[in-house]
Simulated assay, not measured.
Amino acid sequence: MGEPKFSRPKFDTPSHPWKAGRIEEEHAIKANHGLKNMREIWKAKSQLRRHRRQAMRLIGTVDTTEGHGKREMDDLLHSLYKKGLIESNASLDDILSLGTEEILSRRLQAQVYYKGLACSMKQARQLVTHGQICVGEQKVSIPSYPVSRDEEGDLRYHPSSPLNNPEHAIRKAIEGRRESAEYEEEEVDPVATPEFAEEVQAAGEAANAEQAEGGAE
């Protein structure tokens, strides 16, 4: 039964801790998504397993064209569509083709980066944890917050954030690189290049130094 004071873990850990292939894969995912630790990957994998388990159970059902089976299938597809994991015309087979990175891409940290509000995944995590990001009118400081399809267009900087100023060093660096003809011709995403991340980091440090000097005065 377990100790009532402590909640049970809501994710499964790897069955074997020392498989090189899995470790390399998880390290790559961690680097791509700017994650803090492997537990965040394990949580995504556990969530994905639950969705696949439901889909496989429905696929094995005798009849999902009417009655309770159809309602359960429609509810599952509608739920995953609202979460942004599948398209409106998806089927149960599409659920089985989902991967771990599709789950991780719905995190607030990833969506902030994809919307161009941050220069890298790590910076997106920093902005979220420091309270610089709002979902609608609500400030959210949890990087793992799952962003639904309806909330995608409501991501923005917090009203009190200095990043609302278009002249902010980070904002100017992002806009400048986006408008660069060189990057448009090469079809390279400017916020995904290491050089751009280094430049923006330097600009952010300069801006923080200016704010610190202003506060000291």
Rank of each mutant, 00 (worst) to 15 (best):
34 G>Y: 01
35 L>Y: 04
36 K>G: 00
38 M>D: 14
40 E>D: 11
41 I>Y: 07
42 W>D: 10
44 A>D: 12
45 K>F: 10
49 R>T: 10
50 R>T: 13
50 R>Y: 12
53 R>Y: 09
54 Q>I: 05
54 Q>V: 04
54 Q>Y: 08
55 A>V: 02
56 M>N: 11
57 R>S: 02
58 L>Q: 03
61 T>W: 04
62 V>C: 03
62 V>W: 07
62 V>M: 09
62 V>F: 07
63 D>Y: 01
66 E>Q: 15
68 H>A: 14
69 G>Y: 08
71 R>A: 15
71 R>W: 12
72 E>T: 15
74 D>W: 14
77 L>M: 11
78 H>Y: 10
78 H>A: 14
79 S>V: 13
80 L>M: 07
81 Y>I: 10
81 Y>Q: 14
81 Y>P: 07
83 K>I: 08
84 G>Q: 02
86 I>F: 04
87 E>Y: 08
89 N>W: 10
92 L>M: 05
94 D>L: 02
95 I>L: 00
95 I>T: 10
99 G>Y: 11
99 G>D: 12
99 G>E: 13
99 G>I: 08
100 T>G: 11
100 T>M: 07
101 E>H: 09
101 E>G: 01
101 E>S: 04
102 E>L: 02
104 L>S: 08
104 L>Q: 00
104 L>V: 03
106 R>C: 04
107 R>Y: 07
107 R>P: 09
108 L>I: 12
108 L>D: 02
108 L>K: 03
109 Q>G: 04
110 A>Q: 01
110 A>D: 05
112 V>G: 01
112 V>P: 01
113 Y>W: 00
113 Y>I: 03
114 Y>G: 05
114 Y>M: 06
117 L>K: 09
119 C>L: 10
124 A>S: 00
125 R>D: 01
128 V>P: 12
128 V>H: 06
129 T>Q: 13
130 H>K: 11
130 H>A: 09
130 H>P: 09
131 G>C: 15
131 G>W: 13
133 I>Q: 02
133 I>K: 13
134 C>Y: 15
135 V>S: 14
136 G>T: 11
